[in-house]
Each structure stands twice: as structure tokens, then as C-alpha cells.
Computed example of a mutant assay.
Amino acid sequence: MPITPDIIIDAFKQNGLRITGPRRTLAALLIETIGKDFTVEELWDMALRRDPDVGRATVFRSVEILRDLHLLDRIEFADGSHRFRLCQETGHHHHHITCSNCGKVVEVDACLSEEQIASVEQLVGFSVEGHRLEFFGRCDSCRR
């Protein structure tokens, strides 16, 4: 199911947050970022342009909640930095590949098999509860 502003607002409600004007602004703004990645600071700057009452703490708290609910992805880059991207659908498990030259990020539906995950569990003595797999490489444009 595609993510809508109502899904984001419901996520805030489920986590005990009041639905304020700034949170409504964030929900609408996040939908507009689909397919684009951003830092929390960039999201806050975008929100401030629409509503000067949006607080920095509100944006940071909202991003963490949406990330915990798997509505936002945290994308790691080869240099150790990270950015966020709104998931296009709820409940859609995916990974990313990032171009190490231009920074382009693409969602990848490929994943580890159950056997591979079981092998990791056996190797390290953990019970895997979740995972995030990041690929890095060069996109077609950068390879030319």
C-alpha cells in the first residue's frame, strides 16, 4: 500500500504524539520527497519554509518514529554519512544500492535468503530480528 499523509499522521497518533500543524506540514512534505533522500536538517529547512513554527526537535522525533515503523529508510553512504528516504509502500522490505561517485540511490528488492540468515545466526550465535543490507557501486552514468 502506498504511503499517504494519513498513514504518517496515524503513525504519529499511534506513538502518542498530538497532531499539530507542524506535524501535518511534515506529513505532507514527506510525501513530496518520495524518490529523494534528505538529511534531517534538510527536512527541517524545507518544513520551516512552509511553517515557521516547525521545531527542530519535532522533526528529529518524527524522523525517528517513522524510521522505527519502517516508513522511512536510513541510507548509509560509503563515507559513513547517512540520509533518509520515505518508503514508497508500507510493509515493503527492500535494500538500497548507492553510487559511490554521484550518490544516486536505488531501491533493490534482492535480499538474503532464509538459509543465509540462518547461517549468520549460527555463525555468531545471535537470533536475527532484522537486517539492513547496503550495496555500493557505480551507476551506469558514472561508469561511462
Rank of each mutant, 00 (worst) to 15 (best):
V128W: 03
G130L: 11
C102D: 04
P22W: 09
S62M: 04
C87P: 07
C142N: 00
G55C: 00
G55H: 01
I19F: 06
F38L: 02
S100R: 12
R24K: 04
G91D: 15
Q122D: 10
V124Q: 02
D10S: 10
K13L: 13
R85K: 15
H70L: 08
H95V: 03
L30T: 11
C111I: 13
F38R: 01
E115P: 01
V128Q: 03
E89A: 15
F77W: 02
E64I: 09
L86F: 06
F60D: 08
C102Y: 03
F84L: 04
G55A: 02
A11C: 12
E42I: 00
L123M: 13
E134S: 11
D68E: 04
V120C: 05
L48K: 10
E89S: 14
F12V: 08
S62I: 00
R18K: 11
H95I: 03
H94L: 13
V108D: 14
E114G: 15
E114T: 14
L86H: 06
S62G: 03
T20H: 05
P52K: 12
T58D: 06
T39N: 05
A57P: 01
R144H: 10
I7F: 15
D51N: 13
T20I: 07
L123H: 12
I3P: 05
L66D: 02
T98I: 14
R74G: 03
L69E: 05
R61W: 00
G16K: 08
C87I: 08
R138H: 01
G91C: 08
S62P: 01
R49D: 07
S127N: 12
R83D: 01
R74H: 00
T25W: 02
E107N: 12
R18A: 14
D10K: 10
C111T: 15
R132N: 14
P22H: 08
D45Y: 02
H94M: 11
L133H: 10
R83P: 02
N15A: 08
I19G: 04
P52S: 14
R61E: 04
E129N: 13
G137H: 03
S62C: 04
L112N: 09
G35A: 02
I31L: 05
I9W: 00
G91W: 09
